[in-house]
Design a protein around this nucleic acid. Structure first.
Lengths: 203, 203
DNA sequence: TGTACATCAGTGAACGCGCGTTCACTGATGTAC
DNA sequence: TGTACATCAGTGAACGCGCGTTCACTGATGTAC
């Protein structure tokens, strides 16, 4: 019972697979779900997979970098006009929220797959690095430089803080403890990080 | 050709397995190496494994929490007498070093296994959480409180920064870029983090 | 408009392989006499 | 001191299972006449 509806539908199926894979990998890890599981989640059977992707590695690279790119584009729109402390406060509040912590499957792939990405092949690592640089450029623009550190360094520190804090919060078992980690780091970024920072709001 | 040398040798074999597993898991991930691979790395055959551990999960829990505990005990000795800025500067220099980045197999399990730990079973997560709390207590003592934040919050922020920065540095492909991540976060911790902190050096 | 055919996205069974785990066996050590 | 036996850490073959990948097949769609 094959269901096909004219041209353009292969592309839609491909996107369904990528969406399912993106969620499954973030939820269960890059090795926690197989081709069969991804295809089942997309409402398909395993055999059809190779009509869309060369092999499993190609799927991983795309399924990780795609949501990174998508959320950056969305995020650029959402924070348009914001900059400096205002921007940082809102970013920290959203990124270090309980909702984000409890739903890795729709959240940041960097935090969800951190250690596994460090061990991934060249294809995946390259795609991730490019997206990571784009995020840093955005952060630089929003944060600006300070008396002591250039904008790039400040962007790196903020990104490391965000990603590290969310990972720690997901690692601990006790929910109160986890909440405290989120709150402490959110407060730090919103209230203490380089209080004298020069804002350079985007146009 | 079984090699056995009297009492106490089973315990030594068990430790050899744990050492091999600790390194292998940090290098290849919790799912990147199997019982067979761990036993081979320890110079043994797969079958003998179950004389030492109930099952694979029991090995994982112990192989992750043991190096955490060991490095904390060592680290407590090494930083005895230090506190405040001096302590933080040295900690950042060692943790965010290129040597640490390039050798996850002997480094911090939190950074090496971050995302996988977030998905581990209750046994592993519980063991990790206990060790993580011990580290935070040590950090609190060393850092002390500031005008704006209690010691616990400051300890959490520093730990998140360390773990997040090392993970980012391991994720990117370009070495110069990776070096810059380490340097930026090291500088931040050593020179900018709450410059007016009250030191409370351990006795 | 209606029939015959080509296309090709998706199916589902099959493959070889490595995994975690089990178990009958081996053989060096420590003990009994 | 010397021989016979019990112990038990470690061996290695075997198991059932799920993985990534292949491939002959299916059947709804679009096209030709």
């Amino acid at each position: 019972m094959a269901m096909r509806y004219g041209p353009g539908h292969k592309e839609k199926t491909r996107e369904k697979i990528l969406d399912a894979a993106g969620k499954a990998f973030r939820k269960h890890g890059l090795e926690g779900v197989g081709v069969d599981g991804v295809m089942k989640a997309a409402g398909l059977t395993a055999g059809g997979f190779y009509a869309h992707f060369k092999n499993r590695d190609a799927l991983v690279a795309e399924a990780v970098s795609r949501p990174l790119r998508q959320s950056r584009l969305l995020y650029e729109k959402l924070t348009q006009g914001l900059g400096g402390r205002e921007w940082l406060g809102q970013t920290a509040r959203v990124y270090l929220s309980r909702a984000h912590r409890d739903h890795p499957e729709t959240g940041c792939p960097l935090a969800a797959l951190q250690s596994e990405l460090g061990r991934s092949g060249a294809e995946t690592r390259g795609a991730v690095e490019a997206e990571l640089e784009s995020f840093l450029h955005l952060f630089e623009e929003k944060l600006g430089k300070s008396e002591k550190a250039p904008a790039t360094d400040r962007a790196i520190v903020v990104l490391a803080q965000l990603v590290g804090a969310l990972s720690l919060a997901r690692m601990v078992k006790d929910e109160k403890f986890s909440d405290r980690i989120l709150l402490a780091c959110r407060k730090f970024l919103a209230e203490e990080f380089e209080a004298e920072s020069q804002t350079s709001s985007a146009p």
